[in-house]
């Protein structure tokens, strides 16, 4: 039938699109290797267990935001009894590098860099640009 050419062309196009991730990754040589994150040198333990931070750090940040901005509480008692200042720049970024930690993983999983950094500053970057 004369339409068969069109139908098969369309089908091939569809198959190409569906398998796009496979040939893209195979051609680009992508492997399942996770991004290389620069971990803090001076600290062994974050404010919450690793498994919690990996999945739910945004929940913690929202909770901190609420406590500090809305409730006026600035101290956070961690699971291990340590007390931290609830500050993104002052506490989180004192250990972690925004560029080499936050952004790297966010880019990897395609979570658009949140608009935290529209306002909150990375102390390391400020220091670098001041120099």
């Amino acid at each position: 039938m004369r339409d068969k050419v069109w139908i098969i062309a369309g089908l091939l196009l569809f198959l190409g699109l569906v398998t796009y991730p496979a040939w893209h990754d195979l051609v680009a040589g992508t492997t399942a290797k996770p991004p290389q994150l620069v971990l803090p040198a001076n600290q062994k333990q974050c404010v919450a267990p690793l498994s919690y931070m990996r999945t739910s750090h945004m929940k913690l940040l929202l909770q901190w935001r609420r406590s500090v901005v809305r409730d006026g509480q600035t101290k956070y008692v961690a699971f291990d009894g340590k007390v931290y200042n609830m500050k993104l720049s002052g506490t989180c970024l004192r250990c972690h590098s925004q560029q080499e930690f936050c952004t790297r993983c966010h880019n990897y999983v395609g979570v658009r860099t949140p608009y935290c950094w529209n306002c909150h500053l990375d102390p390391a970057q400020v220091k670098r640009s001041a120099r």
Binding site: D25, L26, T31, A32, S51, T55, V109
Partner: peptide, 21 residues
């Protein structure tokens, strides 16, 4: 109920590159 997205991506890429983990 959060999941570990990094692990999800590793699994997904492993699947499409035919070297599943």
């Amino acid at each position: 109920f959060k999941v570990d997205l990094e692990a999800v991506k590793q699994l997904a890429i492993g699947l499409v590159t035919f070297s599943p983990i």
